[in-house]
């Protein structure tokens, strides 16, 4: 077991985890943050995307112990004080959500994009979310939502 300390959505967390536990398992099973989903377990679908020190990663391919000392942000940290972020609002308004299973990961990829590039080009948007598979929407409304959220600031 390894003792780790990290920040998750701004809260300090301390835990003892086995080396083989993924960050995704840690978030879901230990912290009950079930917004990040396992869609494949091998980093191919992006449903488990979270931010690790502001960059998006697939939490299924990160060990919890690797996140020791780092800052983790999940979909649960996106709405501040119960208010949807402009990005979340844009997803609702653009009809970018159908079954919703890919949505948390999709929004985290988009969040990371807006953090590094507040006014992204279409090409940047596509590159940023191409690792997030969605089977329902055909992506068009998702791209529109991210475009609409462009310029709404890095921080929610």
């Amino acid at each position: 077991m390894h003792d780790i300390e990290l920040r998750v959505n701004g809260h300090a967390e301390r835990a003892s985890v086995p080396a083989g536990m993924t960050l995704l398992e840690f978030l879901r099973d230990r912290l009950a943050l079930t917004g990040a989903k396992e869609g494949c377990g091998i980093g191919e679908c992006g449903a488990c995307t979270v931010l690790l020190d502001r960059t998006p990663v697939t939490a299924c391919l990160v060990l919890a112990v690797e996140a020791d000392g780092l800052d983790v942000r999940t979909i649960e940290g996106e709405a501040a004080d119960g208010e949807l972020s402009a990005l979340q609002r844009a997803f609702v308004d653009a009809g970018a959500v159908q079954c919703g299973f890919c949505t948390p990961g999709m929004i985290m990829s988009a969040r990371a994009l807006l953090l590094r590039s507040p006014h992204p080009s279409d090409e940047e948007i596509v590159e940023a979310i191409a690792g997030n598979l969605c089977r329902c929407t055909g992506y068009e409304a998702i791209l529109a939502a991210i475009r609409a959220a462009s310029g709404t600031g890095g921080e929610p």
């Binding site: 943050l33 079930t34 979340q88 609702v92 959500v97 919703g100």
Partner: peptide, 13 residues
């Protein structure tokens, strides 16, 4: 808009 969209965009669904 979908009634369930807020739950889905917040990860609480």
């Amino acid at each position: 808009p979908r009634g369930d969209a807020v739950e889905k965009v917040t990860g609480s669904a």
